[in-house]
Design a protein around this nucleic acid. Structure first.
Length: 972
RNA sequence: GGGCGUUUAGCUCAGUUGGUUAGAGCGCUACCCUUACAAGGUAGAAGUCACUGGUUCGAGUCCAGUAACGCCCACCA
């Protein structure tokens, strides 16, 4: 069998993924007896978005758990899906239509816009799925969900109706964050504050019937049209006497009261007088409620001033501001203007300043649901990993602020509420009284009924021809449907086997920035709908940062497409590196570089160039396109892939595994059995294969330790430990020592060779299974080769069993001797290097063990010792006495000498030994001091003291050898 | 302003309940195309564990404070 000398991912990934998929391996299959079903819901990415490395780490970690549990024999489901992401998607499509056709959504109308967004979804919605497949994600594609699916929609309507019936849904006037560009409210979470250099304008408000005036400072002078009071601190001696009087607003000459409000006013800030604009400021709004002030709205939905603003009506509020200031200045009502830096809320989506705006919105009452969600974590029914993240979850929930769920968008789940006028309750009862899927409530203020229903395509007007019926225009906040994800995707509310099997889910794996937005809400709705938790564990993983320490995100422009990395290094390299980065303390910086498609020159991604569509290569000066450019431009100019040296480690490791396996393939044949560890043990005990040599006993023991450690690491979500243990085992133990050690046996013929082949096959195959969840493509490819070369027929690795240990392969002393052997080799090589003995040049060594047992062991290892040391003559003797000066290194129980042909520079040798002597002496002294310290021996635990004593004994032993050596060098 | 986290080798990061002479990968130095692998091998150099105190027989690890950085939440008329 010809095997390439480098692992080339492109030769394997597509075909292997296809064969997994075709074999149905991604679908849940019946579990082994006693194994609990296992289920993870993929956090649904925005359907029209593109995944970046943040998603790559998220999905890698999920796939590891899924593949591991599948191999354990659990009935396993990884539920994939995408989110309709209301505002984000609608904004993108609207922008696109406006750029191409110059039309707004109002030109198109609701139906047409929604149609266009669906088209957009069909066209671009595939990219994420392609990316997930390229990464090797083993999701149940047959049951892909979308938050606007009929299944999910039913869950949304059902939940809404239940909440409505339970009195948890209400409609109220609230000050919302209004996005004037998208003309919708956005949640607090979608508002980002930006520092803006502005001014603080001081205005003069004349006290009615007096010469006195109040000086109020504002950053938003245009809002004075909506002022309904001026507030001062009730204890403020400067203004106390004015409370109850009126001031006259400039220009419009309207009288408003002076009120005392200790909550709103900080006496120390500014002038101590605050203009109160309840309709346009959250704090003023609350103040208005406290003091029963009227609320005057000054804005139209598009951000222009309304008729209240008199001559300024119709102007955009920001454009009007300087004109208003000018008018105030001219009327003498502007006292002064000072420079002021302030934070202004901007819409995360449209990047325009947010207006606090009074409007009708729908809300969900949070109090009880939040309490239940907190209890689920406090009681330990849900566990966070790492545990500290429970705090941010609990802190957020403890505020129990009602959830505004309406959005003035067209893309999303339309709120299932109908406004009904002109009928009495008797008529409603007659029509819907028997129907559990309809409920209603009286809205006295507006003289109408609020009718709520979970029926699909509900048309109450057909049953109530006499009534005036209007459906609510708003849609639900995207998070409303995402919040149902753990149960809606399983077909809830319909009773079904899938839900019964996989609910609650096993674990949620996600990023910490959506703990409040999403995790908390899932727990709340789960409790409300299913009286259960949605999942048992929440695993929060690291955040991927760019080279400048900024979180990777699409909108920032610093996101790296996983397919860029896959194209250059392969999916397994991406996955390995991601796994290795996934510790639970620090976020991970990934410095990113562009790679010129023409000359392969690398140059760093910077703040400046990260959003550019085209770039010029600093080396070859040719143009290139980035992922921001259109597909045509990418084709024409060549695409500059983003890359990072971070992934080289994964590629190099993959190549190492590949070559180690290649070596194995070259030395195995159709006669080689393919045992599990337990079967190998049984075969040994029955004498079916010849006894293991020391190196084999050692590698099997190390392998079994690795099986246990790696299993525990995955179970405990300690991914970097999983990656590092596998890396160390494969590279430093399997390749560097074991494979090198067994080479001669494999070149022989006979029983011993057959035994060694069996061991090699077992170790390799077990290692492949351990690696598979993290590096599925390559391990599957190697496994296929292994089956071919040994002539076995087995199912694919993806559905193979997770390794089990057999235990007790050899005693500890023997293991220690093997380690001693490796240590001697290292020391010997070190001396070779110190004396500039070239790699091909043979050198003579003497080993002087201190007891006959070790002597006889080393004698048995003469072949490997000779070969690893490139030794000419190798003497192993307890009674060896050096004649004259010989370079020497000491290990516990044994010393190794180098015989030099030429003369030895005795002075140099003496210096070396002297240096070592000094080091070990001070080390031993510090240990002695420690052990001589009575408080240490009194306080420290016995095992620690024992350990220190052993260290001292070893140091003293080494010291004695070094002293002998030194004395000898002196004589010579 | 409140909370959470981070600061360990030139870079990116590990370091389990306090108990080693503090580790890895990349990079660096020297020598090697040795028939699995140069995406490799062998041998090396490189750290005042941010700073200041404290607790302790013993601190990279625990406590307090300081500084810098990052994230989340709240909010500045």
């Amino acid at each position: 069998m010809e095997i390439a000398s480098q692992y080339n991912p492109k030769d394997h990934e597509k075909a292997i993924y296809a064969s997994w998929e075709e074999s149905g391996s991604f679908s849940p299959r019946e579990g082994k007896p006693g194994k609990e079903p296992y289920c993870i819901m993929m956090p649904p990415p925005n359907v029209t978005g593109a995944l970046h490395l943040g998603h790559a780490i998220n999905n890698t970690l999920q796939d590891i758990q899924i593949r591991y549990h599948r191999m354990l024999g659990c009935k396993t489901l990884w539920q994939p899906g995408t989110d309709h992401a209301g505002i984000a998607t609608q904004a993108v499509v609207e922008k696109n239509i406006f750029e191409k056709e110059g039309k707004t959504r109002h030109d198109l109308g609701r139906e047409e816009l929604v149609k266009r967004i669906w088209q957009w979804k069909e066209q671009y919605g595939g990219r994420i799925l392609r990316q997930l497949r390229a990464m090797g994600c083993s999701c149940d594609w047959d049951n892909l969900r979308f938050t606007l699916d009929p299944v999910c929609a039913k869950a949304v309507r059902t939940t809404f109706l239940s909440m409505f019936k339970a009195g948890l849904i209400y409609r109220g006037k609230r000050l919302v964050n209004w996005d004037v560009k998208l003309q919708t409210s956005v949640s607090d979470d979608e508002v980002v504050y930006e520092t803006v250099k502005s001014s603080l304008w001081h205005l003069k408000y004349q006290v009615e019937g007096s010469d006195e005036y109040l000086e109020v400072a504002t950053t938003r002078p245009e809002t004075f049209f909506g002022d309904t009071a001026v507030a001062v601190h009730p204890e403020d001696e400067r203004y106390k006497h004015l409370i109850g009087k009126n001031v006259i607003l400039p220009l419009v000459k309207r009288a408003i009261p002076i009120i005392g409000d200790a909550l709103l006013v900080d006496r120390e800030f500014g002038t101590g007088c605050v203009k109160v604009t309840p309709a346009h400021d959250p704090n003023d709004y609350l103040c208005g409620k406290r003091n029963k002030l009227p609320e005057i709205n000054i804005l139209n939905p598009d951000g222009t001033l309304n008729e209240v603003a008199g001559q300024f009506a119709g102007m955009d509020r920001l454009k009007a501001r300087p004109l208003i200031v000018k008018a105030l200045e001219e009327s003498g009502d502007l006292i002064k203007t000072e420079a002021y830096t302030t934070q202004v809320g901007h819409s995360d989506r449209s990047k325009t300043p947010i207006e606090p705006y009074l409007s009708d919105q729908w809300f969900v009452v949070m109090a009880d649901m939040a309490e239940a969600a907190m209890e689920a974590v406090r009681s330990g029914k849900i566990k966070f990993h790492p545990a500290r993240f429970a705090k941010s979850y609990l802190d957020w929930l403890s505020e129990k602020r009602d959830w505004p769920i309406s959005r003035q968008l067209w893309w999303g789940h339309r709120i299932p509420i109908w406004y009904v006028k002109g009928v009495g309750e008797d008529e409603l009862k007659a029509c819907f009284g028997d129907c559990g899927e309809v409920s209603w409530r009286r809205d006295e203020e507006n003289g109408q009924w609020l009718l709520c229903s979970s029926i699909e395509n509900f048309k109450p007007e057909e049953k109530l021809p006499q009534a005036e019926v209007r459906q609510e225009e708003d849609v639900l906040d995207t998070w409303f449907s995402s919040a149902l994800w753990p149960h809606s995707t399983l077909g809830w509310p319909d009773k079904n086997e899938r839900f019964e099997t996989f609910y609650p889910n096993s674990v949620l794996i996600t990023n910490r920035d959506i703990i409040s937005l999403w995790v908390a809400r899932m727990v709340m709705t789960a409790h409300f709908n299913t009286h259960n938790v949605p999942f048992r564990d929440v695993m929060i993983h690291v955040t991927i940062l760019d080279g400048m320490g900024k979180r990777m995100s699409k909108s920032k422009g610093n996101g790296v497409d996983p397919e860029d990395i896959i194209a250059q290094y392969g999916a397994d390299a991406l996955r390995f590196s991601m796994t290795q980065m996934s510790s639970d303390t620090q976020d991970m910086r990934v410095p990113v570089q562009y790679k010129c498609p023409h000359c392969e020159t690398l140059f760093p991604q910077t703040e400046k160039n990260m959003k550019a569509e085209t770039l010029v290569c600093p080396s070859c000066k040719k143009n290139m396109a980035t992922r921001w450019a259109s597909e045509e431009t990418q084709k024409k100019e060549g695409l500059a892939l983003l890359t990072s040296a971070k992934f080289e480690i994964g590629r190099n490791f993959g190549n190492k595994i590949w070559n180690a396996s290649r070596f194995a393939m070259q030395n195995l044949d159709a006669s080689t059995p393919l045992y599990t560890l337990k079967e190998l043990k049984a075969a040994l005990e029955k004498g079916e294969i010849s006894p293991l040599n020391a190196d084999e006993e050692w590698i099997i023991t190390r392998l079994e330790q690795t099986v246990s450690e790696v299993t525990a690491a995955i179970e405990g979500y300690r991914y970097h430990e999983y990656a590092n243990k596998m890396y160390d085992f494969m590279w430093n133990e399997f390749c560097d020592w074991y494979l090198e050690a067994i080479k001669p046996v494999l070149r022989t013929e006979g029983e011993k060779k057959a035994g060694s082949q069996a061991v090699l096959a077992t170790v390799l195959e077990t290692a492949l299974r351990l690696l598979h969840p993290m590096m599925p493509f390559e391990t599957e490819a190697i496994y296929a080769n292994l089956l071919a070369i040994t002539g076995k027929k087995r199912p694919m690795l993806i559905v193979s069993d997770w390794p089990e240990t057999a235990g007790n392969w050899c005693d500890e002393k023997r293991l220690a001797y093997v380690m001693r052997k490796y240590e001697l080799i290292s020391l010997g090589r070190s001396m070779r290097s110190a004396f500039s003995i070239g790699p091909g040049q043979k050198a003579s060594f003497v080993l002087r063990p201190e007891n006959a047992e070790l002597e006889s062991f080393l004698e048995g290892e003469r072949e490997t010792l000779t070969r690893f040391l490139t030794a000419g003559e190798l003497t192993i003797s307890c009674g060896f006495k050096p004649e004259g000066a010989m370079p020497c290194q000491v290990a516990p129980e044994v010393a190794i000498y180098l015989k030099l042909d030429g003369s030895v520079d005795i002075a140099a040798e003496r210096k070396k030994v002297e240096k070592q002597l000094a080091e070990v002496t001070s080390y031993a002294a510090s240990l002695e001091k420690k052990l001589g310290n009575e408080s240490f021996t009194a306080h420290a635990p016995a095992e620690v003291i024992e350990k220190e004593k052993n260290k001292l004994a070893e140091a003293n032993e080494k010291l004695a050898k070094l002293r002998d050596l030194f004395a000898m060098l002196k004589e010579a």
